[in-house]
Nucleic acid binder design. Sequence first.
DNA 1: CGGGGGATTGATGGGAATCAAGCGGCGTGG
DNA 2: CCACGCCGCTTGATTCCCATCAATCCCCCG
Lengths: 273, 273
Amino acid sequence: MKASTDQVLKQSRVQRLEQTPTSELPRPSRNARGESPCAACPVRDMNVCGALTDTDLATMNAISTDKTFERDQTLIWEGEAAGEFFIVSEGVAKVFKLLPDGRRQITGFLYPSDIVGLASNERYAYTAQALTPMRVCRFPRSKVLELFDEMPVLCRKVCCVASNELAAAQDQMVLLGRKNAAERLASFLLLLLRRKHLRGEEGQAIDTPMTRAEIADHLGLTTETVSRTVTQFRKLGHIELDGPHHILVRDEPALADLAAFDDPDGLPHTASF
Amino acid sequence: MKASTDQVLKQSRVQRLEQTPTSELPRPSRNARGESPCAACPVRDMNVCGALTDTDLATMNAISTDKTFERDQTLIWEGEAAGEFFIVSEGVAKVFKLLPDGRRQITGFLYPSDIVGLASNERYAYTAQALTPMRVCRFPRSKVLELFDEMPVLCRKVCCVASNELAAAQDQMVLLGRKNAAERLASFLLLLLRRKHLRGEEGQAIDTPMTRAEIADHLGLTTETVSRTVTQFRKLGHIELDGPHHILVRDEPALADLAAFDDPDGLPHTASF
DNA sequence: CGGGGGATTGATGGGAATCAAGCGGCGTGG
DNA sequence: CCACGCCGCTTGATTCCCATCAATCCCCCG
């Protein structure tokens, strides 16, 4: 029980107070609050099917603003009024929910072209924090909803995204409900590797900006178990380590075997609305 | 490990062969394959925001057919070509994914007005089987996608549904990743109770058409643990049993305490696109 | 050099899985 | 009508995987 660090909770609460969007990444023409028109927001790269026209992109860009976050800064807070969507341009974020006693479940990690703020009602259903320095495109929720009417293709895209996330969530449920520690870690590493390849990057090296504790909170384990299982994989020759945040996959088939993916090619999914 | 019954797998494989839509529920004007125009399909009741006009409903009805399933019959198979959506009119279904060795994770249970076939690519991402006799509305996927263009509100509805399901999936991840057996069962019972109330039904009695094994496969536990925990709740006076499939919630606050819902009112969510 | 946070490794314990036995309702068939 | 057998549920005994507790290491940074 009581698996995750209370200090996450405390740390978060503190940050909530000093949540000022200080940004460091060099960026032209930014206003006092670190915002600028979203010059090159990657709407067109959203990991969904279909394509938006240039006109559509221009319309999207017109309502979006660029924003940057430092490591550990919070993009959105669970429970707060859901006023904005984000699309990740650069960097990695974690998305999580907390139980009242501080236990944490990280429901996913967000990479460029992923969307933040979807599964939300009037209020955000989860918290999202930067794992690395990030740049995101920000869209006022109200304006996006207006756009749905005049740009139906946008709604279809959101359908696709939500549908894909749903499929991923279901895979994660299988992982959390029915896999053991080794299978969980193997699944996770393979997923990171395949997402990297989907982004067009080559090689068997994955860098994991997340800490062992964050991996643990994603896989329903503890830091110690994650660490032990990583060591075990290393000794078996499945992986090689270059510091705790750089993992080289040496024996992908062995991991795939362990991961027990239904689909031999594994995830992720791509919907087709 | 190896938590779920292999016989589920075997049983399923067998059924796959004799999948004939025999239907028993009385229903007018049905063709040879047990189909009939979906006279009263509950599109308007889809558990989503917004409302369709009468014209929209007529259009939807025009492309839908009514279909019935017996207990244990399969609506859709994971991996098969995804040609149809369904909306549940009557009855309850389970939705699950299998690991190669037969372990099963039930990702959810479907009640009237829930949608089947959403989180799918060209192929269904999961299997859905009837827990009780069911009646569903069936929509050809291709026609629905066409309708998206001429009836944008439909796409928004699907967005809502997907978004709600995503939120529910994230709650389930918290449950599977970070809650113990008692907390899982309490969460589950409360969810059933609250969904019942959302459907407009009164009272603290929930009937659970699912077996202990199915509950276990939904909560990431075993039948034995589910049974033990139910007994424990009964002895504590939190619930009362009238046969294994009728549970009376006596002390809802106690269960809510155990469940560790973030939101005191608990789930489910309703999105607002 | 000292301090701190994350990672690793070891020792121990506990909660749920596993193994096993018995109960009880229901449908079938004699 | 009743006996049998099956299946699902319950309960008990034991095992085991992972959480917990604890110590040490490592690396970065002041």
